[in-house]
Design a protein around this nucleic acid. Sequence first.
DNA 1: ACCTGAACACCGTTCAAGT
DNA 2: ACCTGAACACCGTTCAAGT
Lengths: 233, 233
Amino acid sequence: MIKKIERRPRREESLSRERIIEASIALLDEGGEGALTFRSLSERLATGPGAIYGHIANKGDLMAAACDAIFQRTVDVGVAGDSPRDIIRAVALAMFDAMDAHPWVGSALAWNAGQLTMVRILECLGRQLRALGVPAQRHWATVSVLLNYILGVGGQNAGNAQAARAHGGTGASRDAVLGAIADAWMRLDADEYPFVRAVAAQMRAHDDRVDFLAGINLILNGLDAGYAAPPIA
Amino acid sequence: MIKKIERRPRREESLSRERIIEASIALLDEGGEGALTFRSLSERLATGPGAIYGHIANKGDLMAAACDAIFQRTVDVGVAGDSPRDIIRAVALAMFDAMDAHPWVGSALAWNAGQLTMVRILECLGRQLRALGVPAQRHWATVSVLLNYILGVGGQNAGNAQAARAHGGTGASRDAVLGAIADAWMRLDADEYPFVRAVAAQMRAHDDRVDFLAGINLILNGLDAGYAAPPIA
DNA sequence: ACCTGAACACCGTTCAAGT
DNA sequence: ACCTGAACACCGTTCAAGT
């Protein structure tokens, strides 16, 4: 008799929190926020809707865990040797890219200060601020400005992605949405809305990532001038 | 016979878009995001769920209109004679206060560039940037930084309000939530998370409105230094 | 102990039927 | 023309019943 190697059949990897989160991310990436359902999820996992509750508390918990998984490696992008400003820019861009690739993250992302990932990002950004010489009593206010800006852009991106999805496919529909807005702006009254009319062309052609980085730089530049109300213009 | 003045009975103000939006805002203020339902709304308006669709397209439209109504007067806060920076601060604070008083606005607020209110805010902020001497080719990038920051803070406030509502009433529960987070931060590993531990106390005691204004000032200060990557630290 | 899936109490939206 | 409200196709969540 041929000696069969004792390789236990290793049954179809059983239900686990990781497998649930992995499947959730796949569903969200494929179909957007509305595509994650306890029914669609349990179908993909070949189980019943109730089984999921053995591993996660509720849908909010599930969404938070999925966001956490997306941000998992975001903090490690800072290469040793870079300046504090470079590290902040790198981490911010990594967060932007993650939220750009998975737009549903932006809308589901409240502070979630309980999640360890957010704490890790906070720690990373905070250390750079310390290295930049931000005085200790302003540490909290300063990191929270950075994080609020980053998460705010993510949330707006999420809204845009949802609008683009509603108006059509994934590719050129963003241009179509932006173009329609720009056209509407051009039709506004010239006396009442001169600025919006003038800025419409820039809006139509803008690059989200470039503008995002410009905002980070603006905040970093502002650090040098401190928090006091600036001199009267 | 007494001459009755021809004052037509003016039947119980009939269903209208304004009345629907007004009732929606009341429901959202009283019970948060989950309290607005076509059933709860139609009950309050003493009608059937279907009647509402005669005046609004769908729930997204309803939420957008409610947000719009909240921001209606936000732009008029700038008093003539104030400096551009003062006007920007005043408008930003007015938006913060509106989103603070109606936390559901923050989470429902995507760009919504179609809404006239958002265009008006854009126009107001943009004019001040022009007055501050921001070069024309940077107009769009700069207003979008301001707006993304403002809307981002609003979104985070919305998340906090929802968390506070879940954990208890309205008053001291915010302190409880913040306190619980700060306590958790204090228990983190001292070698791995020195910054987060050190900043926990500030976080516990922070004032959202003060920090928000600090962020606006940071951005305004950054304007003077331009958009180029700052010198290596 | 863990999975199953019918059942419950909702939800947004529609539409024949009324007035 | 406009309102009505039952009905439809969902949703998150629960829980007796199975294995």
